[in-house]
Design a binder for these strands. Sequence first.
DNA 1: CGTGAAAGCAAGAAGGA
DNA 2: TCCTTCTTGCTTTCACG
Lengths: 140, 140
Amino acid sequence: MESADRRIVELLRQDGRMSYTDLGRAVGLSTSAVHQRVRRLEERGVITGYSASVDVALIGTPLTAFVSVTPLDHRAPDDVPERLRGVDGIDACYSVAGDSNYLLRVRVATPQALEEMLATIRTQAEVSTRTTIVLSTPWE
Amino acid sequence: MESADRRIVELLRQDGRMSYTDLGRAVGLSTSAVHQRVRRLEERGVITGYSASVDVALIGTPLTAFVSVTPLDHRAPDDVPERLRGVDGIDACYSVAGDSNYLLRVRVATPQALEEMLATIRTQAEVSTRTTIVLSTPWE
DNA sequence: CGTGAAAGCAAGAAGGA
DNA sequence: TCCTTCTTGCTTTCACG
């Protein structure tokens, strides 16, 4: 990837609402040139989307946790992600090397909601879970 | 929080570059009314920023890992986040309840880069580490 | 990759429920 | 307080060189 593209991606990662004009000034290209590059970056799948970051405490899901997930039956086909895709509140799903097969990041409103979510995860995906509560998030 | 604000936040989470005009149409308010609300959401800290999502494989950091961090000296003041803030490649830092004190998500280019980063983390923060490699990311 | 014109959007002021 | 409308200046978009 080219150096101008790198800088554009870098800047858009920091401020996803930066205007093409400002991007142009920052990388030394015209507005349209930048616009073209951004469009190509989106088409090539380098930029996959834009999103607002939100304070999870202020939108009603103040409780974050990481859930390590291990299938109960090691011989069963591993379709854990498919089985969990519908479960609301699972923010991210990572397939990992190590003690467990998957690591999930979940966000919920209350300890009770977490309890229910864990029950859902266990029955839905036929797995055992090990949960680590997040106390605070110095950065993300 | 009000229902209109909720919808605005929801929409901006899905598309951080959505225009105020389109937001207005979606929630049934004028452009300026939406603009005002977004500004207030930003001021109140509900919306903390905007960012482009990027395919990490395509920008040269294809290797993601989670690093559990435990201070070597339990009596020393806990300033791990401050000590690690400058380290490049640490994407997120969570203070957690459990075996370790912190959980980091890191992104690097190669296993060698990971090795170097772990050395940096250990010396910089005076901690021991336990690393879990991410094999794939079904979603995030 | 740049230019320039047209359309669309943002941002502020003023005023009304 | 919160909304709308109006106005001004930018930004985006697109056709073309």
